[in-house]
Design a protein around this nucleic acid. Structure first.
Lengths: 345, 345
DNA sequence: TCTTATTTCCGAAAAAGTTTCTGATATTTG
DNA sequence: CAAATATCAGAAACTTTTTCGGAAATAAGA
């Protein structure tokens, strides 16, 4: 192949496939009345020449759409991330396509599958934002090969330094939450976090441990549980903690959803919030201030994370180096009504 | 409107505007070097002729993407609708693009604007699903002219019979909720609903009134408030009701979000749920069973509504007549722990 | 088996749209 | 105030899609 940098035209594809450009056009647009054989020859020629159609917005301007893949859409967190992404996308005049992983369906053609990645590339997508989902090294490599940029938000699995991720200062958040409880006078503080492979959860735990250590409080391994970020996990962890010989006077939950689970477990146990038990959440989703009582929680700027992820993705797609491989946005403690001083013994 | 008018071409637009088609093309693609005056003339001509660009794939075979427009993404309801849509889209092998209305930004190029609609048509979208947002007759007409199908979910404004809408059996839901409270022995039951222009809210109110009437209970106008479906609206309506001379023993809230507001107002008032006050919500979003106590609510099959909306949209786009212009999915009462018999007087 | 329709298939030419380039004005700048 | 630069519109060139006519294949009758 000569160093012809010119973009191949449909005519060249047609010539290579031995058909007219009218027929090549039909193949490209999935029209009827093209024999299977002809179709295959044209497809082959398209692949060989690396032909990309030039209809509509051209050049770099054609990278005007991104895909977002969610682990699940079934929670407020996802909605808020998406809200941030869509807002930023509107400002940058790019379109947002949404996919959700379906654990039921296999990976046949679904999000993050090989054929899905190829399709994105041929459709001129700028890249993919992966939200709270797992991204394997293989998937990462396929995307790179296809020329797709990737940004990950709160990844479920640890990733090499090549992939850009956006998160928040989880360590600081864990520190803030735990210090708040210590300042109120609590000493038996539990951590009810996500599964231990989750990097954000681990970092929050480290912050928790660090705060305890700073305050000269010995950490009790019996008060650290890591079953998940879900409502159900929170409820179950709280039930376990209430059954301890000396139950905690405060629980730091790894997410708002699990904090809600703690609240429900407390209600079942007949504990009043915050008098009998202080609870701190994490995220500050919309559900944090719609609980009774409103939840003290560590605020992650979730919508900002979406915005930053989109902007970073577009930067990458334009070939600019991102400012950093791991972008952390600041967390902030929001004190509401689910925490107070422990009862005097 | 003439049915088989030839579609106007760019040349005709150019002629009407008194420019060359090259210049008209520039306007269409937002390119530089077009004077404001010329741009306006061309835009005017485009509007007058109802021109829609025809570049790119545009036949039925390629209608493999739909746009979804949300009033806001900032709640669980939107997330669940989207979840249903994305699931069905995956099954049908179509892609989903998400937009959110931004009240801050004007309508310059934003979702539902004229240029937005044109762009969708150019990009071969099958149509648009509008979720809990307002759709004007003008927007509807532009979409029809551009050959885009439309399906509306829980519309904010009343619509003519031409546009297909998907909702749930709101009247029956109102009936179910109110009967449940009546069966428990309540007689002073309040309705804390959405604003009265909202068709779903009105229908729920009618169900409420009908149930009361069936039971021979006189409706007290002082117990009917219609301030909105939001958390805040729910909290404020509840506060108002608690201040009544004879406060209600049960509140039927128009949505789960407003039911959460009622819960919070009750907590502030020192009322225990369900002993001092029974609360019924509407929607059965994820937030309904993550409250303390879990909420008795009228289940709308929200994800199914998304699924049905997508399928109906694709049917329409294929030129098939939809089964019905207004599709209502069945509601179902889900009894949890926020309702019980009223205290004996 | 031999017409006669019908459907499939392909390409030449026409149609539709975008980009380049050229020339004419305006607007800035040293 | 001349030179450089930016803006603007249209003719021509170019890319892609669609139409349409005819060839080949397939189905249907008699």
């Amino acid at each position: 192949m000569d160093a012809d940098m010119e973009r191949p035209t449909l005519d060249e594809v047609a010539r290579l496939a031995g058909v007219s450009k009218a027929t090549a056009s039909k193949v490209l647009n999935h029209r009827r009345y093209v024999s299977e054989d002809t179709r295959r020859r044209v497809e082959e020629a398209i692949g060989r020449l690396g032909y990309v159609p030039t209809t509509g917005p051209r050049d770099a301007a054609s990278l005007r759409a991104v895909n977002v893949v969610f682990d699940t859409l079934a929670n407020v967190y996802s909605a808020q991330v998406l809200s941030g992404i869509v807002g930023a996308a509107r400002a940058q005049d790019v379109e947002v396509l949404v996919d959700a992983l379906d654990p039921a369906a296999g990976d046949a053609g679904g999000p993050l599958s090989a054929s899905w990645i190829r399709r994105l590339a041929t459709h001129g997508r700028a890249g993919v934002i992966v939200v709270t989902a797992e991204l394997t090294a293989g998937q990462r490599a396929q995307m790179r090969a296809a020329g797709l940029s990737v940004v990950v938000i709160d990844p479920l699995n640890p990733l090499d330094d090549e992939v850009v991720s956006v998160g928040s200062t989880n360590f600081a958040g864990g520190l803030q939450a735990t210090r708040h409880l210590l300042d109120l006078g609590h000493r038996r503080i539990a951590y009810a976090g996500g599964v231990s492979v989750s990097a954000p959860s681990r970092e929050r735990l480290q912050g928790y441990l660090s705060a305890l250590s700073d305050a000269g409080v010995a950490a009790d391994p019996g008060l650290v549980l890591e079953q998940g970020f879900s409502f159900r996990a929170g409820r179950e962890m709280a039930a376990t903690l209430f059954a301890r010989e000396r139950p905690p006077t405060a629980i730091f939950a790894g997410s708002d959803a699990s904090a809600l689970g703690v609240l429900e477990a407390a209600r079942r146990q007949g504990l009043r919030i915050p008098d009998d038990l202080s609870v701190v959440g994490f995220d500050d989703t919309y559900s944090a201030f719609t609980t009774a009582p409103p939840l003290t929680t560590v605020r992650q700027p979730i919508e900002d994370m979406g915005r930053v992820a989109l902007r970073t993705l577009l930067q990458q797609a334009r070939g600019e180096r991102p400012d950093s491989h791991h972008i952390q946005l600041a967390t902030q403690l929001v004190v509401r009504e689910s925490t107070t001083a422990p009862r005097p013994e």
